[in-house]
Amino acid sequence: MTSNDRPRAIADVSSGTILATVTIAVPPERVFHALTAEDQIPLWWGSDEQYRTTRHIADVRPGGAWRSEGKGADGEEFHVQGEYLEVDPPHRLVMTWKAPWDGDNVTTVVYMLEAVEAGTRLTLRHQGFGARKESCRAHGSGWEHVLGWLGDFLTSEGDDKPQAVFHCRLIPPRPDFAFTMTAAEEALMKQHSDYLHRKLAEGRVLLFGPVADPAGPWGLGIVRAEDEQGARELTEADPAVRSGLGFRYEILPLITAVT
């Protein structure tokens, strides 16, 4: 990420307040949009190793409600929600924060955006934890990740898109897998599909879906990457492969690709 600094968060458990900052090399207007737009937050808020936001609903006005939904790396679904208290684009955004994993306690998040020579200095204050010291510490660590994801997403937008295209064939652990899946395997396939949908939204996957091969269905993905190693890294992060159940990808480069 091109920025003056990496995200840093300090949790002051004595006051129940978190203060986090990051400098991002894009204008405040772009940062504010990424923090509020319904189609933006699912693109950057999360990672495959921790959790992914899959849906964001936002009525961005004072008194308007917002809600984010997602799924953890373990497949467990979650949500967090709140209400906008102040909306002053592109300078300030204040909203309440209510999460089931935090006992549905209501806290307040304040984003402050300042234009600087390097782009935007984003300062976040999350307050109202009271005596819940462990929750304050955990959220502080979480905000460092979140601001890092935001910065990486925004400063990578100008990068040239990789040009190589690869045919990726997902071979299941048995030929009749598509017809004999257990409930656990069906849940795994949902995680696999969610993962590829995210990569589709990012532009890394051009298309994907099952192929009706008479010898047994298999999965097809057409992937864009800088090189074969990049394609392999993308496929190895697929929950199906990571499950250890015997899924594997065969990867072949396209000689030419017309889109």
Rank of each mutant, 00 (worst) to 15 (best):
F179M: 13
A184N: 12
T120F: 03
Y84C: 01
G140N: 06
R67Q: 11
L93A: 06
D213Y: 12
T120Y: 04
E83W: 04
R61V: 02
S14M: 02
A240E: 04
Y84T: 01
R198E: 07
A201G: 03
H126N: 05
S68I: 10
D39V: 00
A65F: 07
S14H: 04
G230F: 15
H79A: 02
A99M: 13
M181D: 15
D159T: 00
A225F: 12
G221Q: 03
Q127E: 13
K133M: 07
G128D: 09
P62V: 02
G75M: 05
S14Q: 09
L170R: 09
L35K: 01
R52H: 11
F32K: 03
A184L: 12
E226Y: 13
P175S: 15
M181A: 14
A240L: 05
P175H: 13
D152I: 01
Q81S: 13
F247N: 05
V110H: 11
A34L: 02
D160T: 08
M95Y: 03
L154H: 05
D238S: 03
Y249L: 00
D5K: 08
H126W: 08
A178R: 14
K199C: 00
N105E: 15
S68C: 08
A237Y: 05
T53L: 06
W66K: 03
D5Q: 07
D12P: 08
A183F: 12
P42S: 07
T2I: 13
V258C: 05
E134P: 01
Y249C: 01
D194L: 04
P89I: 10
Y249S: 00
G63H: 08
W218Q: 13
G158A: 05
P210I: 14
L19W: 04
W44F: 12
I41T: 06
H79T: 02
G72I: 00
Q81D: 09
F177Y: 15
D238I: 00
P42L: 04
D59Q: 08
L200M: 06
P239V: 09
T53V: 15
E83Q: 09
D59S: 04
R92S: 05
D88M: 08
F32T: 04
G219A: 12
H56Q: 07
H79C: 02
T96H: 09
L245N: 10
P172Y: 14
L220A: 07
T256N: 15
L124Y: 06
S47K: 12
D102S: 14
K133G: 00
C136M: 07
S68E: 08
L234D: 00
D213W: 12
D88P: 01
G16M: 10
H33V: 03
R8C: 05
E38R: 03
R67C: 12
L207N: 10
H167W: 08
H56E: 00
H139I: 11
M1F: 02
R204V: 01
L254T: 03
L188R: 10
S135K: 11
A99G: 12
R169D: 02
V80L: 08
S15G: 01
I222G: 00
E157T: 03
D104W: 12
D194Y: 03
Q229N: 15
L124K: 03
A99F: 14
P217S: 14
F129L: 02
A225W: 09
G72A: 10
E228I: 15
T180A: 15
A178Y: 15
P162S: 07
L35E: 01
L19Y: 10
T36A: 05
A183Q: 15
D59P: 00
R174D: 11
L124C: 04
P100M: 11
E250T: 05
A115Q: 15
G128K: 11
